Amino acid sequence: MIVTHNMVYLNTVNKLTKDEKNRSESMKKISSGLKINRAGDNAAGSSISSSLKAKILSLSRAQINVQEGLGVTGAVTKSLDAISNNNLGRLKEISMRAANDTSGSFDRRVAQGEIEQVLKDIDSTANSTKYNGKNLLAPPLQPISLQVGFKGEDTFKIELFDTTTSNIGLSGIDVLTSENALAAMDKIDNAIDIVSRYVSKAGSYESNLSYMSNSLSDYELKLTKSMSSIEDVDVAKESIQFTQYDIITQAAQALLVQANQRPEAVIQLLK
Rank of each mutant, 00 (worst) to 15 (best):
L223R: 09
K237F: 12
V199H: 05
S217H: 10
L255W: 00
I247G: 08
M227N: 14
A181F: 13
N167E: 15
Q244D: 05
Y211A: 12
D162Y: 03
Q258R: 08
A236Y: 10
S196G: 13
G169P: 10
S196L: 02
S239M: 11
K201A: 15
L160V: 03
N214P: 10
I158Q: 04
T243H: 11
S217G: 06
K237H: 04
A202W: 05
L160Q: 01
D189A: 10
M212P: 13
T163W: 00
L170C: 07
Q253W: 02
A259F: 12
Q253R: 13
Q250L: 09
E179M: 05
N180D: 07
I158W: 06
V195F: 05
S196Q: 13
D246F: 01
S229F: 07
T163H: 06
T163R: 02
D186L: 13
S210V: 02
F242D: 01
I173C: 10
K225N: 10
M227W: 00
S171R: 09
E231S: 06
I188N: 06
L182T: 15
L182C: 03
T155F: 00
L170V: 02
S217Q: 08
V257G: 09
D234A: 09
Q244L: 08
D174E: 06
L221H: 11
T224V: 04
E179I: 05
A181N: 08
T224L: 01
M212Y: 06
I168H: 05
I173D: 07
K201S: 12
L216Y: 08
S217T: 01
I247A: 10
K222L: 11
I168N: 06
I158S: 07
T224P: 02
A181C: 08
V199D: 15
S196D: 03
G172P: 12
D232M: 04
S196R: 09
S239K: 09
T165I: 14
T163C: 12
A202M: 12
S226V: 09
S204Y: 08
E159A: 04
L256A: 04
Y245V: 12
K157S: 13
F156K: 05
S178I: 12
T249R: 13
K222G: 06
L255F: 10
T155P: 01
S166I: 07
S196C: 10
V195M: 03
E159Y: 05
T163I: 11
E179G: 07
T155R: 15
D232F: 01
T249M: 05
V235C: 11
L223P: 04
E206H: 15
M185C: 04
T164M: 11
N180W: 03
I247V: 12
V235Q: 14
M185D: 08
S178W: 00
